[in-house]
Nucleic acid binder design. Sequence first.
DNA 1: CTGAAAGCGCTTACAG
DNA 2: CTGAAAGCGCTTACAG
Lengths: 355, 355
Amino acid sequence: MPEPKRPKGPLTIYDVASRAGVSIASVSRVLNGQGSPRAATRDRVLQAVRELGFVPDGAARALSNGLKEVVGVVFRRGDETPFPDEDESFLFIDVIYRGIDLAARRQGFDVLMGSVGFNDGNVEARVAAVGGKADGLILHDRMIPATSITRLASLVPVVTLAGTPVPGAMNVRCDNDEGMRQLVRHLVLDHGYNELGYLSGRIDSPDNHARAKAIEAEAKAHGAQVAIGHDWQGDYSAAGGARVISGLLESGRKLPRAIVCANDQTALGAMHALGRRGLRVPQDVAVTGFDDVPVARHLHPPLTTVRQPMQELGAMAFAVLYSKISTGRGDSDVVLPVQLIVRESCGCAAAENGR
Amino acid sequence: MPEPKRPKGPLTIYDVASRAGVSIASVSRVLNGQGSPRAATRDRVLQAVRELGFVPDGAARALSNGLKEVVGVVFRRGDETPFPDEDESFLFIDVIYRGIDLAARRQGFDVLMGSVGFNDGNVEARVAAVGGKADGLILHDRMIPATSITRLASLVPVVTLAGTPVPGAMNVRCDNDEGMRQLVRHLVLDHGYNELGYLSGRIDSPDNHARAKAIEAEAKAHGAQVAIGHDWQGDYSAAGGARVISGLLESGRKLPRAIVCANDQTALGAMHALGRRGLRVPQDVAVTGFDDVPVARHLHPPLTTVRQPMQELGAMAFAVLYSKISTGRGDSDVVLPVQLIVRESCGCAAAENGR
DNA sequence: CTGAAAGCGCTTACAG
DNA sequence: CTGAAAGCGCTTACAG
């Protein structure tokens, strides 16, 4: 029987200790690089670990040293649709997630994902449960009320993503305001468009709110008009963008010279709808996006947009959280710079393409 | 001071108990719905919990009752590329992941993601660490050697995805063989093509191996030739697919009537390369994929392919794992049916389109 | 350098 | 129905 006789239950540090002929304290020290065990001790422990295939129990470690080495991340995601047509929204979250993941890995943390469907009940309970299993929490946008976030934050460090800072919690976001202002300046000053429309995102989104305010302020500063409001209300989806444009066109409304969309998805839908009516982009109407999702550069024409550093957003969220976890303090509102990506849908020539 | 006086350290069950004037045992029972506490007890506990904002510590619960309610999932993913051009590969993993997530959520489990970069060192240690923090492990394809999987599986239940069953571990996969056979029958019997080429995936992939064997066997059964081998070796990427086709064309080789690609990405690259040489799909050369990624139906022409039920794959992986965790036994090799999706790249007319 | 022992925050028989 | 106590598998002062 080549199989080493295994103790009954799951393997514990006691099994390793007895096999190596040392105390559990020594095993622990060797495994964690604490103290300076004698080489002989080290070797015997390591060998026993190898022979037994021992892996320390995470829960016990966590309980003992007060560190789980786990970040909780809760995103909201669509529910049952197996292959939704808005493929990209996924990708987007995925990129943020990757930023978190990469940064976490560097510190030996793993990521506990607690996703929540759009129409799930008791979201707060779910978030709390994830919080109980982690050293800190990264929350996407407005999943739970601000007061709940504050309460939760007294229990475990919390950073919100792309939201508005909430008392007690930390926040990391992109500079929507500056991005939108750069975009407006490009359209108004470089192209001379003086009539813009803002095809909005979901009305309850802080991002949307920030972008709407920025476009209005900057347009005003340069003497341009901006159509905005109920008739222009989309929902961040391509379908929503198309719906708004169709509605506008059907009601016989004259479109502004440039349509600034709340995000790339919306721009995609808008361009579709315009194309169906025989309107050319950018000759008849210029269209811009926001996000710079991967397909943006492959559209016809390639989409002028604002790139948000999503991966850095994720990495920064972890960094801030980690700082709070390990030192007890962390920045409460980090703003990441965005970048104007000029392609052709604004009316620029192919040569000037941003990549 | 509306703020209730908070104990020094983090909140524990003792704080709740003393505030409610009961023992910690009662608090635990109320929280977990064990026993039948008196209504009065229940209420006082619940109120104390609410007032304090108490959330039980996951590590302590796990250690105490031997259940972490966490599934570990380890995928391999690309490393630093911020916005890779092969966007879809992501999505794909994401869909599997969603299946796992949905199924896990239903049982109150959360998902611990421990991703691994393609050129990360000590993958085994990482996988083991994740294993130590979870009740069970879902592993993508061949991340670590079979023997390591077997060893790990003696410690914690393991299910591998889309791989070959490994002793001790469980496995869930799609029916590559049947999918490829259906595809070949369609090409040979329905379209009458008797010369096929198999543009392969990574050579070390079990999936690729299974698909290659299936196409050879089925082609032979129906008297068709299949070109395969070194000159036809891709790597699952669009770039790889394009490279193979270009190489073939440059060497003056005559292409077979239909090119069966190892996956959709490869087909995408192949179609690009064919287009660049002025070859028409499907009139000059038919092309097929495998996977049915979301963009497949939007290609020109829409791609005929085999749909793998990725979300179910994930859900099934969890189900099998959960069964093992809770009952001690689970199926060791589950095969999920695939579906032939006939679109136009095989030569079928638009009307016959699968969705 | 190393071992015996306490303690991390829960759950759950075991008495009452 | 409820409380006192043991125990889950580790880590880490504290002695030696």
